[in-house]
């Protein structure tokens, strides 16, 4: 299959008074048309920065895209001029941001914010755009959509604001939706509403989705494929069933082992991963997980492992074969 988006060796850094933040350290992945790719990893591992890099939304300075390419529709997004990127952003690739309150304009009505994009990207008239906006709010389950167009963001609850953001992101029928933790700040019952909504819309429109989250439970329910990130790198990549059935990276294993299960009686203490993630202010050397790894060897101190194939749909960046505990050969 021809990928919709192919990212190669993306490196993004921030220069701050304390030094360089090594936020994204060379990641490569692709997204196929109509598929849902989940990106999981803990706070600060570079999930948002990698997506913002693709969208041309990294503040420079302090940020800097050091290398890489992101091929979409034959074009390298990272090399586009601002005006060219503007045409793609919001129209072909849309993003729902982590915090809906900071990404909605507090002094404009919701109606104004949705219709503006429609008028600018699709060239609709004001009346057409209004009509479309009502349909969109309706679609994401906002009651009395027509009246609510006149309301300001603060008049909506957190869950409703997130749905408004999704309505706006979908307004121009993008080919790719990037959703950055769209449910993290929400309660589980509202989270379930949003997940259902996105999955339904995705099916109706054959839209591809990149869903960023740190919740391995959410991932299990929505993803076709999963990228596991750690300290600015992709450490494991697999289709969703295979990842949960046979996680190959000790970090992925650790994460799954440390999760309590709502569907089971307690049978043991949680298995915690010791330590905490490395500081991103230190230039990466060796495997980023080495200080917390239960199976690491000397080689892990020296050189970062590259992604290698475990099976057709499964790649891992680890020097050690997880079943034998031996260093891989070759």
């Amino acid at each position: 299959m021809h990928p919709l988006l192919a990212v190669n060796n993306l490196v993004t850094q921030f220069v701050i008074p304390e030094g360089i933040v090594y936020a994204v350290n060379g990641i490569s992945f692709r997204v196929n048309p109509g598929e849902t790719l989940a990106v999981v990893g803990e706070s600060g591992c570079g999930k948002s920065v990698s997506m913002l890099s693709l969208m041309g939304l990294i503040p420079t300075p302090p940020g800097k895209i050091v290398s890489g390419e992101a091929i979409y529709d034959g074009k390298n997004l990272l090399a586009l001029k601002d005006e060219e990127m503007e045409k793609i952003r919001g129209k072909e690739i849309a993003m729902v941001f982590q915090d809906p309150m900071t990404s909605l304009n507090p002094v404009l009505t919701i109606g104004k914010q949705i219709t503006e994009a429609l008028i600018c990207h699709l060239g609709l008239t004001t009346a057409e755009a209004r009509e479309r906006a009502i349909n969109l709010l309706d679609m994401v389950g906002i009651p009395e959509a027509q009246r609510r167009l006149e309301d300001y963001p603060h008049q909506f609850s957190g869950g409703m604001r997130q749905r408004v953001m999704i309505a706006m992101a979908l307004s121009c029928e993008p080919n790719l939706l990037i959703a950055d933790e769209p449910t993290t700040a929400l309660d589980v019952t509202i989270q379930a509403q949003i997940v259902e909504l996105v999955l339904r819309l995705k099916q109706q429109r054959n839209m591809a989705v990149i869903w960023i989250t740190h919740d391995l439970g959410v991932v299990a329910g929505i993803a076709d494929r999963v990228n596991v990130m750690y300290a600015g790198l992709i450490v494991e990549e697999a289709n969703v069933d295979e990842l949960y059935e046979s996680p190959n990276h000790p970090y992925t294993r650790g994460l799954l082992g440390s999760l309590p299960r709502i569907d089971r009686r307690r049978d043991r203490k949680l298995i915690a991963i010791p330590g905490s993630p490395p500081s991103l202010l230190v230039k990466p050397k060796g495997c980023p997980f080495r200080s917390r790894c239960p199976i690491g060897k000397e080689v892990c101190q020296m050189e970062a492992p590259k992604l290698r194939n475990v099976s057709e749909n499964h790649r891992v960046a680890c020097w050690i074969d997880i079943s034998s505990g031996e260093q891989i050969s070759g």
Partner: peptide, 14 residues
């Protein structure tokens, strides 16, 4: 409703 909304980290089951 609350319990049914909690995701289970097991794709097949979920």
């Amino acid at each position: 409703a609350l319990l049914s909304a909690v995701p289970i980290p097991d794709p097949k089951k979920d």
